[in-house]
Simulated assay, not measured.
Amino acid sequence: MEFSPRTAIVTGSDSGIGRATAVALAEAGMDVGITWHSDRAGAEHTAEQVRAAGRKAAIRQLDTTVIPGCAAVIDELAEELGGLDVFVNNAGAGDGVGFLELDHTIWARTMDINLNGAFACIQAAARRMVAAGNGGRIIAVTSVHETQPKVHAAAYVSAKHGLGGLIKTIALELAPHGITANSVAPGAISTPMSGQDGDDPEPTLYPGIPLGRSGRATEIAAVIAFLALPASSYVTGASWAADGGMLQMGPVGSAHLDSSNWRQG
């Protein structure tokens, strides 16, 4: 099957990795659907960059804690774009609450934002791709915590583990339809979510990361763009760590810690 993507939706694309991804896909020749939760101005700024690349931009608000409404937003964007070839699930958020203090309300909200809402959006996108019969690409932005734990993040880590498992499972089920499913697992990235503003903040120095710094949103977007394009046609069910080597530092990193501050999150 010849796959030639012309339309994409990127959730949580009002800033950071989502914005960089929307722009990268526009530069690759796709019209892009953009979603925002609370920053409409940020989404409009992303749309301006997509249009500057010569592509169409469509914008909708998306609250992934309102599960019944998720599919409708994806369907509306796909209708406005005239189809859906690539879906990038990027929307997500942490909670920073320790396990013993974690109540069900915070647990459920974190699960809705990162996993339940993602399921609803991904399913809506997949159904459209299957119905169109032209193949497709589904990509989820997870985290290095898709595979590795973090203190004070039990709900977030559990949700990211679940999202990674969902992607691997649908890779098997959607393969006969010419649809690939992969996840991208960023490490420390310079974005508003990590307290840094702007389209492309300067990386922060991190001695404990082999490459010695945080990543740029554009570096994650480049990996996502590859997975969205025809060149990645034989890649599915994979989790792509984009972390500067962070995940390889387990034993080495722990051996060189000189305090127990890591226990505080």
Rank of each mutant, 00 (worst) to 15 (best):
A140H: 02
G117V: 09
A159R: 10
A132S: 12
V66D: 15
E219P: 08
Q49D: 07
G42R: 08
S233F: 01
I106T: 15
A28H: 10
G94M: 14
T169M: 10
I167C: 03
H256N: 00
A222R: 07
T105V: 14
S38L: 13
G187Y: 01
E101S: 15
N261A: 10
G16C: 06
W36S: 11
G250C: 00
P207F: 00
A171I: 05
L81M: 11
G83C: 08
G208V: 00
G133C: 05
L227I: 02
R128T: 09
A53I: 06
A242I: 09
A41V: 10
I139H: 01
L227P: 02
P203Y: 07
F119S: 09
A185F: 01
Q264E: 13
T46P: 03
I179Y: 06
E44H: 07
G42A: 10
R109K: 15
V144T: 13
R128Y: 13
R213S: 07
A124F: 14
T218S: 14
L166W: 08
S214W: 04
H37T: 12
G165V: 12
A52F: 04
A132K: 05
A53G: 06
D200T: 06
S183L: 09
A118G: 09
M111L: 15
A131D: 15
G135H: 00
L102W: 05
Q264S: 12
T218H: 08
A91L: 12
I224E: 01
V50G: 04
G253F: 00
I170K: 05
A124N: 14
E2V: 04
R55Y: 06
G237D: 04
T105L: 14
Q248S: 06
G117Q: 08
E2P: 01
I34T: 02
G96V: 06
G245T: 08
R137D: 02
A175T: 07
A41Q: 14
A185H: 10
A52W: 05
T169W: 05
R216D: 10
A72Y: 09
I17C: 02
V97G: 03
G165Y: 14
V86L: 03
A221T: 04
D39H: 15
A217C: 05
M129H: 08
G33E: 09
G98N: 09
R51Y: 02
S194E: 08
P201T: 04
G92A: 15
